[in-house]
């Protein structure tokens, strides 16, 4: 447990000091402030403005940042894992669990510290056409998609030796999955469909069971990715 906490703390500190994390936060916060001002001056609808912010800023920038941060979780430390960490009194499970909690936790913390003030300001300054339950569900669904992205990134960082191919694989998976799911008649599962539906979701116009279905799918996919990654890492030669 001691080793787990030490690695968790070490990794979290690394993430907070990373220039990618800082740029990510900056690129989310600045447009959010801009859209709050626009919404107030133009008397825009809160649901539409928030959904537009997600489509143009939050989703693409976060996808890119999370893919990099998660995909470098283990492969980014390849040279020091065995020499500095796993040759000491650390189990593989402790190490990978600390990495998973740190990377997913960090993603969700950044997401929360941007989304909560942004939502509050939109409620206050835009024309509020949202329902509290719809907004909560909408943000929750987006959080589950980001969690899946982070989980997939961590798994790729275990499976691949280099960071760049892992990042590209994660991004390509997300981009191509839309087309593949549409072809399979499962377009409701694609991230594009979820984001397109956000204005209605924020207004509480979509069925709750549909959102729960999306939540369940992405949570299950995250769990499968993490279990697979942990299994591979535990059996890997370092």
């Amino acid at each position: 447990m001691q080793a787990f906490l030490a690695i968790l703390q070490y990794d979290f500190l690394q993430l907070t000091r990373s220039w990618i994390s800082r740029t990510w936060v900056l690129l989310l916060v600045a447009p959010a402030i801009f859209w709050v001002i626009v919404a107030e001056n133009g008397s825009e609808l809160a649901s539409e403005t928030m959904a537009f912010y997600v489509t143009t800023t939050l989703a693409p920038i976060s996808a890119f940042a999370v893919a990099i941060l998660a995909s470098s979780a283990i492969s980014g430390e390849a040279s020091i894992i065995s020499d500095s960490i796993l040759s000491r009194s650390v189990t593989r499970t402790e190490y990978v669990a600390a990495k998973i909690i740190s990377r997913i936790g960090f993603t969700l913390i950044v997401y929360t510290i941007v989304v909560i003030p942004f939502t509050y300001l939109m409620f206050r300054f835009a024309v509020d056409d949202t329902s509290f339950g719809g907004v909560a569900l909408g943000w929750l669904v987006l959080a589950s998609i980001l969690t899946f992205l982070a989980a997939l990134g961590i798994t790729m960082s275990i499976a691949m030796a280099n960071v760049l191919p892992a990042v590209l694989t994660v991004l390509l998976t997300i981009i191509l999955s839309g087309a593949v799911l549409q072809f399979l008649g499962l377009s409701w599962m694609s991230t594009t469909a979820v984001i397109d539906q956000l204005p209605q979701t924020f207004r509480g116009e979509t069925a709750v069971w549909e959102q729960i279905r999306v939540l369940t799918v992405f949570s299950s996919l995250s769990l499968i990715a993490l279990i697979t990654g942990t299994f591979v890492f535990r059996n890997k030669d370092l």
């Binding site: 001691q2 020499d83 500095s84 650390v90």
Partner: peptide, 27 residues
């Protein structure tokens, strides 16, 4: 205790912070 050939350590750390980290891993 293990010393690998041409060891690699977290490059942003100092010997003090790295050894502190090793100490905390060791409990």
């Amino acid at each position: 205790g293990y010393l690998p050939t041409n060891p690699s350590f977290p490059r942003h750390m100092t010997p003090i912070t790295y050894l502190e980290f090793v100490g905390s891993i060791l409990g």
